[in-house]
Design a protein around this nucleic acid. Structure first.
Lengths: 209, 209
DNA sequence: TGGGGAATCACTCTTTTGGGGGAGGTCTAT
DNA sequence: ATAGACCTCCCCCAAAAGAGTGATTCCCCA
């Protein structure tokens, strides 16, 4: 049986074009919609295998759309299909559960590949997107250098981000309690924070450690 | 001029095969090595555009290899080429700065595509790898459900992970100081931690919030 | 050779946190 | 209606953390 596809895209012209394009290639388009407010109901009723989701639409955004679909029918594969390539929207989509992320400049051939890929459990992404995703993992030295942390300070910060108390850190590093505290004071100053909790939040979210 | 490629792979047979395969397709293999202890020097001297890097090798691992190469010559594109698809090794490679991650079952055609893709600033990944990467962004509800946190507790935890003090959280949420503390006590119990610092570390690294 | 940063440790003082209670209200499900 | 959750707030007390100040080494480098 053919792959069932639903399209959420507010540009009427593009939506129709996509629909025809897919139909000509033996896909079954089970619905095409200009907004995704009812996305949850739609996927429950029409049970698409794959959803192509735009981001910028009237009413609920495609980001919300992904959330709705993933809550309603988690195994539905959702491929974002958008012009946006800014980090903000990208990572919001990924966190919402998107299975792929294609830019609209993607060729039809690649679009078909992507649909196939996502059906096989992959995660199709446009090259620049994949790059952003991998870059988001880059860690360590960059952040530490940025804040000019010394080797010892980095070490203390690493223990801190594991949730260790000052006493425990001192014990682990074979240092006096006050020495660790001294390092921490310098760390807080360099990171522009006022307490260990902020330091942990900053260190982890900016991947300093 | 042809693309310059260096190969780090401890299996002699595979290494030779790869070398010939690449040479037959107009790539210039500037070196192939059975270990990556000297990777830093090698990339500095031979200036490859792309490096194919195995993980399991005698001496330094390929993960260390990526770090060395990225420190020595950051714009060198490194594609992991390995049989491993466990999360541990995968994310270590990505954090070390890998630009791509291919499983050894990848077809030669796809390998060439990947080299081209990484040269164009992309991030070639085998489908199952790409999937793991995207999955690592899935956040929120999953973790929160796992630890059975209530809506209010999640809200408090979110403020906490931003580094807010109890007093500030109370102020932000228009609650009494003791109410926030009460929520925190329950959060700590549910997360199996003993203090806010541990809670922040756990919440962020497990993407509970 | 003198300055400066890093690393080490010490003391005091105040504020913040965590752990232990308890208590009253709402809401839901049985 | 009764039990069990959340959510809300209160008290006490001890431990931990933060802020300020200062001192001693060691090593690098200008």
């Amino acid at each position: 049986m053919p792959t069932r596809i639903a399209i959420f895209e507010d540009n009427d012209r593009l939506r129709e074009t996509l629909t025809h394009l897919l139909q000509m290639n033996d896909y079954e388009v089970v619905g095409n919609y200009g907004r995704c407010d009812e996305a949850a109901t739609i996927v429950r009723v029409y049970k698409p295998d794959v959803v192509l989701m735009d981001i910028d639409m009237p009413g609920e955004s495609g980001i919300t759309g992904v959330k709705l679909i993933k809550e309603a029918r988690p195994h539905t594969a959702v491929i974002m299909y958008t012009v946006f390539e800014d980090d903000e929207k990208l990572f919001q989509c990924l966190c919402a559960g998107a299975n792929g992320y294609l830019l609209k400049k993607t060729s039809p051939a690649r679009l078909f590949d992507a649909i196939q890929e996502v059906l096989e459990g992959g995660a199709p992404m446009s090259p620049t997107i994949a790059r952003k995703v991998l870059l988001s993992f880059q860690s360590g030295a960059a952040g530490a250098k940025k804040y000019d942390l010394s080797a010892r300070e980095i070490e203390v910060l690493q223990w801190l981000t594991k949730g260790y108390s000052i006493k425990s850190i001192a014990s682990e590093m074979n240092l006096a309690f006050d020495t660790v505290r001294s390092h921490l004071k310098n760390i807080y100053r360099k990171l522009h924070v006022n307490c260990g909790k902020e330091a942990i939040a900053k260190a982890i979210s900016e991947r300093i450690v």
